[in-house]
Design a binder for these strands. Structure first.
Lengths: 221, 221
DNA sequence: AAATATATGTGAAAAAAATCACTATGCTCC
DNA sequence: GGAGCATAGTGATTTTTTTCACATATATTT
């Protein structure tokens, strides 16, 4: 109902709700209350209700939420009611992993092609998709409508590839190259993934945990 | 100086500062001001200064920050002054990718072994590390001090493996299995990675972008 | 059919995070 | 070595996010 902008933090929480609801759905659970969902997810019920309310009332007082309805509605918000054509630039292990992962269980993403600069890989097939030479990318983009490009290449060539992609009309880039891709212009959206960031946060918390332990030991516990 | 707890959001931003500083360092830039760094990173200078101040004054008025000092200091905060022994559970594409990625350029992480349930992979070598049978995991853990376990397996067996890991004394789990691992107890830290969450946020923003475009077209622009 | 229990939606309050704006310090250049 | 400039550190303010708490609506039970 509201014209008010949806806060970014809320958007970032939606995929997690979506996962949990999908899980409930596959287990045959048809109804869920914010309280029960909050217990399972480890967040507050209040936050769940407030988040969902940004998009309108999906629930019913005294009853809760219908799992399927809520799942579908959040899916729509996230754009999961459409199919996206995906290409993957970089057919190394990570490219393969993403190809597997993305095609998995028909989630609305279709990997159409992979590209690599290694001539030995060109012509091979991954998950029903062909690996092309990176040199064929401009031509491919001219001939095939493509929604999302995934970058699973080392950082060195990454920004050049981005230029090619943007010139070829790509509107969304999922970037795993270890370099931040700045927004080339307002006609493109970019999601920069830095796996190592998560690993470093983990290390921080491990350090913290160990320090805590030491403190306890010092006090003879 | 402070005993005050560091906000989680600040911790999550540190790895990004760390990356940018590492990049500056490798390009021979020895000094940087919060203003200049803010321009490069696309955040406010104020936020940078405030974030860093949680850990004490690393800068100097009228000069800025010494890139190397700041890099090293943030590294220490993140626990990058130590080496971590890593094992990878799941030697598929993602496991391989993480093995490559984690060992890269001697970043303080050493991949010691991989484990897989596929007998055909057992005995092979990835990045100087041997692939073991998953059945050997308990024994391995008894004999080798290990800091971090990475889970790159499908979600089905994931929680069982976590149990084995925790019983074996693992304190940190970096989980790529498509299921949230709840904190088994307060002696373990877990970082759940859901690649698809980022993809869905990207899709949301792509949808938004396209809707915006449509609106503009309707108004004849 | 009434009574009771449940659980949403939401305005208000509280807490957290980000930004502002200024002070004081040390650098740089003349 | 002094003047002016640049910039960190930081208290105050603003904005954003989260949580609280309750009125209302629906379901369920007796």
């Amino acid at each position: 109902m509201s014209i008010k902008r949806i806060p970014q933090v809320v958007i970032q929480r939606l995929p997690r709700y979506y996962r949990y609801l999908g899980d409930l759905l596959s287990r045959g659970i048809t109804r869920i209350s914010s309280g029960e969902l909050s217990r399972r997810m480890g967040v507050t019920a209040s936050q769940i209700r407030q988040d969902l309310n940004h998009f309108g009332g999906f629930g019913q007082q005294g009853y809760g939420y219908n799992v399927e309805t809520l799942y579908v509605e959040i899916g729509k918000i996230l754009g999961q009611d459409q199919e996206y054509r995906v290409i993957i630039i970089g057919a190394g292990n990570l490219g393969h992993a993403v190809a597997n992962y993305t095609n998995y269980k028909k989630q609305g993403y279709r990997v159409m092609a992979l590209f690599d600069s290694n001539k030995e890989l060109v012509g091979k097939v991954v998950q029903d998709s062909l690996i092309y030479s990176i040199e064929d990318l401009p031509e491919y983009l001219r001939e095939h409508r493509t929604d999302i490009a995934v970058l699973t290449i080392p950082k060195d060539g990454a920004l050049d590839v981005v230029e090619t992609l943007v010139e070829g009309g790509i509107q969304a880039i999922w970037n795993f190259a270890s370099v931040d891709v700045p927004l080339p212009n307002s006609q493109v959206v970019v999601e920069n993934v830095h796996l190592s960031d998560g690993l470093r946060v983990l290390t921080y918390r491990l350090k913290e945990l160990r320090e805590q332990k030491e403190h306890l030991q010092e006090r003879g516990l």
